[in-house]
């Protein structure tokens, strides 16, 4: 198991925003985490990333309790791509991607040749080689998101967490991002956990889905089995119809 979650709950003040979460995430699978606003998607991701503190022995990463991992060890196990944001500093693309090598640094050491090679591969995979000397504060939102993904790739982790990576991206950049991510799960056997909003993109790209409602797992499993008309109706409160066109399931609202 790549990530296992046992009896996880989380409180904001007195309010339980997550309760009774039990799930096993398998290696090499692309998981979509979906659910209405406030259902606890981002909270779950932040708990796994340790940005919020989970209780002891509730989240296990490659067999280790995540709360006992040292920061650098954790960063060698999993990387995170946050929601889109601005960098208002004139760091170059390459400098930002190089930050992904931090978990492997010892002391004051400069980048090794191996680091340099990993950075170039990450830039290559995300199609950024030509832009590697550009300042990140001159990039568009879609390009910046790719830089952040390249940084996560440079971390060489087996787990990749993405928190609504598609918000504010146009459809071209959304598909671009999903294709890249999908490739990482298939070719490099990475476990991907991605908070998604668009149900049709979820249907098309995710192997498995975790559907949250009111802080609990409402349904989980193979995407087609979770994204059903009944589930969408009872969790989102909308009447949807699922039709098959050219072998693809399309959700019509």
């Amino acid at each position: 198991m790549s990530i296992s979650i046992k009896q996880l709950e989380h409180l904001y003040g007195n309010r339980k925003v997550l309760k009774n979460i039990i799930h096993e995430f398998e290696k090499g699978q692309f998981y979509g985490i979906i659910g209405p606003n406030g259902s606890g998607k981002t909270t779950l991701l932040k708990l796994i990333a340790n940005l919020l503190k989970p209780s002891n022995e509730t989240i296990w990463i490659s067999g280790q309790d995540v709360t006992t991992l040292r920061e650098k060890v954790r960063a060698r196990e999993m990387a995170m791509v946050p929601q889109i944001f601005n960098i208002d500093l004139a760091f170059s693309v390459e400098e930002i991607v190089a930050m992904g090598r931090y978990p492997y640094k010892k002391g004051l050491g400069d980048l090794t040749e191996n680091d340099q090679a990993v950075i170039y591969q990450a830039l290559d995979k995300t199609n950024l080689l030509n832009n590697r000397l550009r300042d990140v504060n001159t990039l568009s939102g879609g390009e910046l998101q790719r830089v952040i993904l390249a940084r996560a790739i440079a971390q060489q982790t087996s787990i990749l967490l993405l928190d609504e990576p598609l918000s504010h991206l146009d459809i071209h950049h959304q598909i671009d991002m999903l294709n890249l991510t999908k490739k990482l799960s298939k070719e490099e056997d990475k476990t991907i956990l991605c908070v998604m909003h668009d149900l049709n993109l979820t249907m098309k790209y995710c192997d498995q889905v975790l559907l949250l409602s009111d802080g609990e797992i409402y349904a989980s499993g193979k995407t087609k089995e979770v994204l059903t008309e009944e589930n969408i109706r009872s969790v989102y409160g909308i009447n949807a119809e699922i039709v098959e066109i050219n072998g693809h399931n399309i959700i019509i609202y």
Binding site: E71, L89, F91, M99, G100, Q155
Partner: peptide, 23 residues
């Protein structure tokens, strides 16, 4: 000066610096 790398990362975003392994 020993912390120049961490300063770069914290300046970009403290939360991301944390997920990148900075204490």
């Amino acid at each position: 000066y020993k912390y120049y790398m961490e300063l770069n990362m914290i300046m970009v975003s403290e939360e991301q610096a944390f997920t990148l392994g900075v204490s």
